[in-house]
Design a protein around this nucleic acid. Structure first.
Length: 213
DNA sequence: ACATTAAGTGATT
DNA sequence: AATCACTTAATGT
């Protein structure tokens, strides 16, 4: 077995007690996933909850005709509120999770969630906090989708992406952006052109660089 | 050289 | 802001 305890300590040591860290290293399964791999599909049953050690996982909502919307990213130190939601409620996944970069995670069999809530107070607050945090983040995205103009939405999307990936240089097509924002490619192209004229981005084929960031 | 894919643009709803 | 229809540019084979 790979020794992931050090990484666990590094990422979660400041919230979790020694006892909990030990417990996690015992029952957790270390996984390294390449970019663009689907972790959870729509309607699947979750058997594990992930603790992210490094990398980024994008969480998307999808409707029946394959239209998608990016909800948020999971980063190091995060866990997925939706997984908690469907594990505790014994439901299938309402979302799709795809790795954006190479990602390291520890998968914990879901029945420990409940158990540890009683045993470890810091686990309970961790679970509650990630719930709280996601609810807030989702309210932000709802606001953005419902009340914000496309140009600003696009700028926020690019900024967020740059933040998560830790780079102002993004490699993606206008079509991909359109899909993730659930709009059309033409609109994205036009707005990107506008941003370029404002000096906020530099465009290339398959690439976008953010300026004054 | 040709086909394919990404991006740019005017006109219409 | 979305869709259509078409052009132009970049890339793969």
């Amino acid at each position: 077995m790979i020794d992931f305890k050090g990484k666990l300590q590094e990422q979660y040591g400041y919230i979790f007690s020694e006892g909990l860290i030990n417990k996690i290293s015992e029952v957790g399964i270390y996984k390294q996933v390449e970019p663009q791999n689907e972790l959870i599909g729509y309607g699947e049953v979750m058997k594990y909850i992930p603790l992210i050690l490094s990398g980024a996982v994008k969480i998307m909502r999808e409707n029946s005709d394959g239209k998608e919307l990016l909800l948020y990213y999971l980063e190091k130190g995060d866990t997925c509120a939706f997984t908690l939601n469907c594990s505790l409620g014994n439901k299938t996944s309402e979302i799709r999770a795809v790795t954006e970069t190479q990602t390291e995670a520890i998968m914990i069999p879901f029945h420990y969630i409940d158990q540890w809530i009683c045993e470890f107070p810091e686990w309970r607050s961790f679970v509650l906090q990630s719930y709280f945090y996601r609810v807030n983040e989702m309210i932000d995205t709802i606001d953005s989708v419902a009340f914000t103009q496309m140009d600003e939405r696009l700028w926020r999307y690019l900024s967020y992406k740059a933040m998560v990936l830790g780079s102002t240089h993004l490699n993606l097509t206008h079509q991909t952006i359109a899909d993730e924002m659930n709009t059309s490619r033409v609109v994205v192209s036009r707005l990107l052109k506008k941003l370029e004229n404002q000096g906020k981005v530099v465009l290339g084929r398959n690439e976008i660089s953010l300026k004054n960031f």
